[in-house]
Structure formats: C-alpha cells, structure tokens
Amino acid sequence: MEPTLESPVSPKLSVSDGSALETKRLSAWFGDHHVVKDISLVVQKNDVFSLIGPSGCGKSTFIRCLNRLHEETDGASVSGEVLIPGAGRRDNIYASGVDPVSIRRRVGMVFQKPNPFPGLSIFDNVAAGLRLAGVMRRNILDEVVEMSLIQAALWTEVKDKLKKPGTSLSGGQQQRLCIARALAVKPQILLMDEPTSALDPISTARIEELVMKLRNDVTVLIVTHNMQQAARISNQTAFFLMGELVEVGPTKSIFTKPKDTRTEQYITGRFG
C-alpha cells in the first residue's frame, strides 16, 4: 500500500476500493492547540493497523476523530475529511448533515481503561448498544451477547454469571467485556486506544490474541505505546510525532527498514 501523505483533497469524494477508512488532511485542535496536523492515510479492510509514537503526540486525539468523539470535548475542533464506505453523504463522516451518532455505530471504540457501565450486569453491558437502538427480542439479544462474548474470548469465563455486575470482573475480563460490548453492535471498524496499557501481561496476551482473530470480521486500528505489541499483532503501522504522521507502511518494513530517521530513532528507543 502506498502511503498517501501528500494526496490533495479531491473535489469528488469517494472511498477507494478495498479501503476501510481514509483520512484526508485531518487536523484536530483543543482550543487553539493544534494536536493532530494534516494527517492523510488509508487503512485497508481487515487490516490491524497500529499507531505508535511517544505519549502526547496526538494518537488518542487522532483516533477519537475517526468516530467523531473528539468533538464531544469542550473547545475541541476538527478539519479535513474522514472517509468510511457506507457512512453516507458521499461517505465523508464530517460532511454536513451526517449524524455523529450513526457514525459511532459503524466505528466502535475500546478505551485505555476498562469502562463497563456501573450497575449493569455482564449481559446488559454487552446488550446495551442493541437494546438502546431498539432491539428487544430476547432470542436475538441472547444470541448476539453470546457471539460477542465468544469473539471477545470471555464467554467461557462468564457464561454462568451473566447476571453479575460487569464491574465484578477482573480488569482484564472487564476490558474483554468492553470489547464484546463494542462488537455487539457489529461495527465495520474497531478503534482501540492502548487497550492493554492498564493490564497485566497475561490479560494483555489474551487481548492481543483475540485482536488477531478479530481482523477477519472487522478492521482494527489500535494505538499502542508498546512497540513489541505493534510488531506482534499489526500488519500496518503508522508512526506519529508531535501531531504529525512521520511514516506509515507495512509493520515489518517500519520496524526493519524505516525510511525516516526519526522513526528509526524511536523504534530503537532513542527517544519517546
């Protein structure tokens, strides 16, 4: 895949074949603090696409632009385009008239810290997205909850205690619960913001394993500050530095023969 660093904004919007997501000159601000600068990149369907870079370089902000969550923060703003096939309005999720709520159904998210809904059972946590979207049929809910929990590699551990509160699980289990919850609404794309940084090595390994399986069903963008993790689970990697996209390409070549000296310095641990 060619990095599309300097692709100009085309007057006619459309998503290229096989791509799951494309950003064009995407910028984001907190107030007048410009934290994501002019990012253009393409993510192919069924990629596990990792974003690496030192903390504070704008990785979280970038992926929060992809499901229009960034704009929920006070004073936050965005410019540029994010193209997602099927999103409507010629598929730019920032086109006027596009409802952020409908975008977030296509683009799921898993956060850095596990955040199950307090007071809701394991079952209700996973069913929440569907139920509140109006799906009421018990047999459909049962089926989707089971499937999602299987996909999130949590089913065998919780199938006998679905009525227990989600918050009663261990940290690693809670994070898998959050993954199941996101998968239950069948998103095209799953954004994961350092999903294992709050977890122990065993829980981390389980999540890495399940992410690698997920790529058959969904395109995954995962932020990680752990370069080994990026190398293990992703096929494409983008390196961010101070809000800019320094380099993007197949994970192997980013880690073995980076083109940019800053990438090389970062992966060899000379800064960050």
């Binding site: 499901n67 956060f111 809701l120 509140l132 979207a133």
Partner: peptide, 30 residues
C-alpha cells in the same frame, strides 16, 4: 462521580447523549 469514560463508552456505541444518561448512567447511580 461517574467517570466521563463511562459517558464516552455510551456515546461510542452510537447512542444519543440523553439515552446514555437516562439508560446507562442513571441505573448505575440509582
């Protein structure tokens, strides 16, 4: 006292703000 992360989790499921508050946040603080 409810962390904003819980709020965001609801929004990220593609639910409107008021539904997140009424159906996902309130039950937890009843």
């Amino acid at each position: 006292l409810v962390p904003s992360a819980v709020h965001e989790a609801g929004l990220a499921l593609g639910l409107p703000r008021w539904k997140v508050l009424m159906r996902l946040i309130l039950p937890g603080v009843r």
